[in-house]
Write a protein that binds this DNA or RNA. Structure first.
Lengths: 154, 154
DNA sequence: GTTAATGCAAAGCATTTGCACACGT
DNA sequence: ACGTGTGCAAATGCTTTGCATTAAC
């Protein structure tokens, strides 16, 4: 009998097929393998970790393909990318607790000081074994400058 | 008469001096200039933006110095760095709303599903002109694996 | 005068791109 | 068969490092 994890895993595989079809994307072995690798772990692997996972089974896959397929997954909504938008470090002279507003259009990061957000505590029992030291909330959206502008592609 | 911004700015300059002294760090013109540039803006500049700002005044500064000084500032606590810890993108097949636990020791990212954190709304009037579309909380701390290990320098 | 900080150029990584070949439909 | 997807290798962009020179204390 299949357990819950296995069942949800099958669901996700099915979902991949559906989403690929509806976006006119080919269901290549690489995409399947990369999806399986990603869906079977919950620790947010890097491109290289996914590459390692699949290259055991798929001889001769390219790291480039992993990069491309993962970005494809993000664009069709079956995966999420966690990183700073432009892979550039940003610095801040304000060391007090505060949160961030990131504009998805221009990449600008604004501060949000709001004491009502400064004492969040995850519910007991929800936390995997982990000692929390600090936290920060990143709100994503559109800044006033970008809202006014007509969308320019690229 | 000095306004509030100017006053807090002077305070911060003084603070830089104090912190540098107490850490045995020299108060170079580069460090002063980089600190001033950083403290005078609230939009989280990139290294290059800081570099542009200071190179107007300081002829012949090196980008390398900006990199090094900003990291120094982070290590003595006068600045904060905003970016993914290892400058590697991470991916996730879980597209439902959830939050993250990032281990500062090993860089691993774990999921935190907790409905009590899923309906945060910044207090009215606190938000700069900005349309919020989504948000995510990143908790930083030590994962169970790293807690057990003795700290190994590297 | 010492020691730490800077500037330069070269090296390191993660990621992207151009193009020919291979595969899915 | 057609067009998209992949693999390879080279290019790009951000960041770091080694080493000689310069400046702070």
């Amino acid at each position: 009998m299949k357990n819950d994890l296995q069942r949800s895993y099958d669901l996700k595989r099915k979902e991949l097929e559906t989403v690929c079809r509806s976006n006119g994307l080919a269901l290549t072995i690489q995409r399947r393998a990369i999806f399986d690798a990603l869906a079977s772990r919950t620790d947010h692997p890097t491109v290289d970790q996914v590459y390692e996972d699949i290259s055991e089974k798929l001889k001769g896959v390219s790291r480039t393909t992993v990069y491309r397929v993962l970005e494809t997954f993000v664009s069709i909504g079956v995966a999420t990318k966690i990183s700073n938008p432009e892979s550039k470090a940003r610095f801040d002279a304000d060391t007090k607790r505060h949160h961030h507003l990131t504009c998805i259009a221009c990449g600008k990061v604004l501060d949000l000081h709001d004491p009502t957000l400064d004492n969040l505590v995850p519910r007991e029992g929800k936390i995997p074994d982990f000692d929390i030291l600090d936290y920060s909330i990143t709100f994503t959206g559109i800044c006033s400058g970008c809202r006014k502008k007509p969308l320019n592609k690229h």
